[in-house]
Nucleic acid binder design. Structure first.
Lengths: 156, 156
DNA sequence: CTCGATTCAATTGAGCGCAAATCACAGGAG
DNA sequence: CTCCTGTGATTTGCGCTCAATTGAATCGAG
């Protein structure tokens, strides 16, 4: 008697992926990546590389650990990605003389210069999303709340 | 004079990743994957493999194209994934005798049997998300709307 | 029936993401 | 100073994701 529909002819609820919040987020993430691809191709960046650049544009000179904390990414993901940005001439990677364990990430002039181009991309994405700022902020807050709850679960 | 804040001391708005909806979705997606990992390890599945199984539990005997349409994934992603599910004894992959281009995907008894274990996982995930069904449905609808808009943009 | 276009799956190459193991450095206890 | 522990980054191995290409089968025009 624990079923919501009591007795007759409901063989199984049969959940579909389209009913699952995790799948909505999964699919929307891919859709964003594919939206960004042609826009970022002009800058020679991938979507995760772009997120790294946005973070560095806000605070230059952080180390890998701090960057990873902001993006929720592991150093084993970031190290090869940062090497590619380095090879592309957008950042430099130097050990901190005060603590040789840390690698400091600094934008090159070329890396700084890309910031100007990014504004145009943000406008394109906002247009593609096609929702007002209020709606987006509310949605974002709801998603972040869930993310934080999932991360908290991780420790428990 | 094109700046929104007219004259004084606003050097740059400096958008951060935490202000970007795309990043919220990106990070939440990873959080879900990490929540699922220990749960699915018991079944020997990865998260994308689990989504495939959920889809096949709902409709057995589809081909790769149809599966990809549901999950928004390409055959180049699915082919190796399906080979792993085949190697694990959860599905079979056979050419459609009516049209030899298609590969039909069918659950094995072992693949069917996993469906029972999945209910428990869904309960764990729902508990971790910790929101009522109404809230989740609203959130999911909003995300799906944006996803559809992004996909539509793709064609234009 | 033959030719050309289309469709479905598979393959290839590059990059992302994470767990686990490794290496180097820093800092404290003795 | 030496050992031990902890931390930051890298390496390795596996799987996912997609663009581009290939190969095989189907279908339609003539």
């Amino acid at each position: 008697m624990s079923s919501p529909s009591p007795g007759t002819a409901t063989p199984a609820p049969a959940p579909e992926v389209s009913d699952m919040l995790c799948f909505s987020i999964y699919a929307a993430g891919h859709a964003f990546t594919q939206l960004y691809r042609p826009l970022l191709d002009k800058l020679g960046l991938t979507y995760p590389q772009y997120l790294v650049m946005v973070t560095l544009w806000n605070r230059d000179g952080q180390n890998v650990k701090e960057l990873g904390k902001t993006l929720f990414l592991d150093s084993s993901t970031l190290t090869p990605l940062l090497k590619r940005l380095d090879a592309a001439g957008l950042i430099t990677r130097t050990r901190n003389p005060r603590d040789e364990r840390e690698v400091l990430l600094r934008l090159t002039p070329a890396g700084q210069a890309l910031k100007g181009e990014a504004a145009e991309i943000m406008r394109c994405v906002a247009a593609a999303v096609g929702q007002d700022g209020q709606t987006i902020d509310t949605l974002r807050a709801a998603i972040d709340t869930i993310r934080d709850r999932l991360h908290a679960q991780r420790k428990a």
